[in-house]
Design a binder for these strands. Structure first.
Length: 587
RNA sequence: GCCCCCGUAGUUCAAUGGAUAGAACAGUUCCGUCCUAAGGAAUAGAUGUCAGUUCGAUUCUGGCCGGGGGCACCA
């Protein structure tokens, strides 16, 4: 039973019985009135604004109308609304519902009985969704921007799975373009310094990173005005045409190193892509799509093929360069059409990138809508903010870049320090530190709305207290430790007859809201809703823990409290899973 | 110049057109015989500005001020 839906239905029926004219059909169908969770617990467990919405049309005072509706609703207290304790009118005309405490307590037992699947819905059942995210560039470092895209994309994927849909995770690595020519140009210059294939991953990616920076610097004129621009541009063509064995070998080497490095990072971060689609593979198709729509969608201009965005209140972008090469825009078209060819029954295709590409995507998707509206109308771009430090925007071009690896290792060291005096083995410490570090980083990214920048404080450290990932993990570990104790110790307490409490706390109420929240977070593409909820939930549990002894042979309520602890742990574990955060065994 | 996004406690972030705008950090206090103190309890502190729409605006509209991003062959 979903209490929120039941209440909505009851209010709707009451309106009908009262013969309240609902002539504004549009408003009704769009849920003109809402059943909400009031922020202030004194306002009950649910509230409804229906009287305020309809008062004006009926030329009645909201409070008077509210009283009428309440009188009508009270007739249901012994039938449909038998889970409701009382209904009252408050404030300007809100109708507040107080639910019987016993109902919450019983729900907790139901949740425990239901097992580990608590929270997953089926509103998205039968739907197939593609999520594309992370999109790193081979030969370039995997930086914290990619980490951000990964954290957000993974969490959205899980939210969509949590609503019952099938998700395909796609990654679109860039494996072609000027950035690679720059790197290979420098590699040729430093041929004798190239690490062996069996060197450490760190050594190889470090080398590639340096080559990219050197190539980029050499591309720009130095003090005397000289640059390697023409050499690198020529090399770019050679790479594209694949007609030099030497260059091909360097390309394949760097590509392999990069992709191996990415795979190991995905494993650490907890992402498993179903497929990589490479940018180079999209070039022929992109080119073909654009060429076949010249005159209709695109037009030639200054030797290039462009889309005139101004006609659609956007800006103009080049899709085929004057050299006849497809730009990123053309390849993007190829990619999105390819997605629907490979996964034909897709209902929704989501692309996660940094928000500096927001305008770019508007142009590309507009042109796509004129080519294949079936694809375009199901494709959605979501732009995320940048990860910023006090020093400003990071750049992989100048080498002033924070790699994902470096950030993870820095945070991991902080955790190591914190647990140095704990009685864990070295292996355990390492595992814990990694899980906690990833949790801290992901939480920092996911706690706020997706579009805006995430600011790391100047000391580049992450707090492990309060509003943080480790705070959530700690609450879960604590609950787990208690349940472990019950299992190890005598099961006397567990087997006692089930006595339910007279009054329930905020903890029970929050736990029962979880499925509703998952659905909402999914519909709004808003992982921060989950993050926010979990902080409140953890606080409620910690508070409960501080004022109640859970395992107590003498207390008949102990059995209930253990069940409550289990329900909390399931909810917290599943909530953290939605954020892509694991719960360590100890910490 | 044109287009897009954003201005909320000292700081970093929340808030479904709704009731007394929530947290956390930093500040000031308190809690250690008791299941993990990475914890709990208390306290103080905010909607850039001027209009408009609305029964009701942090939320919607417009102006101003301030910040960020984008705008032709990079990805």
């Amino acid at each position: 039973m979903n209490m929120k839906n039941e209440l909505g239905r009851a209010v709707y029926k009451a309106l009908q019985r009262l013969d309240i004219p609902m002539n504004d059909q549009a408003a009704i169908s769009k849920n003109a009135f809402k059943i909400e969770y009031p922020e202030n617990p004194e306002h009950g467990d649910f509230s409804c604004n229906v009287a305020m919405v309809f008062a004006k049309g009926l030329k009645s005072a909201p409070k008077v109308l509210a009283e009428k509706i309440v009188t009508e609703l009270e007739k249901d207290l012994t039938s449909d609304l038998n889970f409701v304790e009382s209904i009252s009118v408050a404030g300007l005309g809100f109708i507040n519902f107080k639910i019987k405490d016993r109902v919450f307590a019983e729900k907790i037992l139901e949740i425990v009985h239901g097992g580990a699947e608590y929270g997953w819905g089926n509103s998205g059942a039968q739907k197939k969704v593609i999520v594309e995210y992370t999109d790193p560039n081979i030969f370039k470092v995997f930086h914290i921007g990619h980490l951000m895209s990964n954290a957000i994309g993974e969490s959205l994927s899980r939210l969509i799975q949590g609503s019952g849909s099938h998700v395909t995770r796609l990654c679109y690595p860039s494996d072609i373009g000027l950035h690679i020519a720059k790197s290979i140009w420098a590699m040729k210059k430093h041929a004798d310094e190239i690490p062996a294939d069996d060197s450490s991953s760190h050594k190889k990616t470090d080398f590639l990173g340096k080559m990219y920076v050197e190539g980029t610097n050499s591309y720009e004129p130095d003090n005397s005005g000289k640059s390697a621009k023409s050499e690198i541009d020529e090399l770019n063509r050679v790479i594209y045409e694949k007609n030099s064995a030497e260059v091909n070998a360097l390309y394949e080497k760097g590509r392999k190193w990069s992709l191996e490095h990415f795979e190991s990072l995905y494993a650490t971060l907890g992402t498993k892509f179903d497929e990589n689609i490479y940018e180079s593979e999209m070039a022929p198709q992109g080119l073909q799509i654009v060429k076949s729509h010249i005159g209709k969608v695109f037009q030639e201009s200054e030797g290039a093929v462009v889309f005139k965005g101004e006609e659609h209140a956007l800006h103009t972008r080049v899709f085929i360069s004057s050299q006849g090469l497809p730009t990123y825009e053309a390849k993007e078209l190829g990619l999105n059409v390819t997605k629907f060819k490979k996964y034909p029954d897709t209902n929704e295709s989501i692309i996660i990138t940094a928000n500096e590409q927001n305008e770019y995507f508007k142009v590309v998707l507009k042109s796509l809508s004129m080519i294949d509206n079936n694809v375009a109308s199901r494709t959605k771009h979501i732009g995320h903010g940048m990860l910023r430090f006090a020093s400003g925007k990071m750049s992989s071009r100048t080498g002033n870049v924070v790699t994902a690896e470096a950030l993870i290792s820095d945070i991991k060291n902080l955790v190591m320090e914190k647990i140095s005096d704990r009685d864990f083995s070295a292996t355990e410490k390492d595992e814990i530190a990694e899980v906690v570090a990833i949790g801290a980083i992901k939480y920092t990214i996911l706690r706020q709305a997706i579009g805006s920048d995430v600011i790391f404080d100047s000391s580049a450290s992450i707090s492990f207290e309060g509003d943080s990932g480790p705070y959530l993990q700690y609450a879960a570990v604590r609950a787990g430790a208690i349940l472990e104790k019950v299992k190890i110790g005598e099961s006397k307490v567990k087997n006692q007859t089930k006595t339910l409490p007279e009054n329930v706390s905020l903890l029970e109420k929050l736990i029962t809201r979880f499925p509703d929240l998952v659905e909402r977070a999914r519909n709004e593409y808003a992982p921060q809703r989950i993050a926010n909820y979990l902080i409140t939930l953890a606080g409620a549990f910690n508070s409960y823990y501080a004022s109640n002894k859970i395992i107590d042979d003498q207390d008949p309520l102990s059995s209930y409290r253990i069940n409550l602890t289990q329900a909390f742990l399931t909810t917290m574990t599943n909530g953290l899973w939605l954020l892509g955060i694991k719960v360590p065994k100890k910490m």
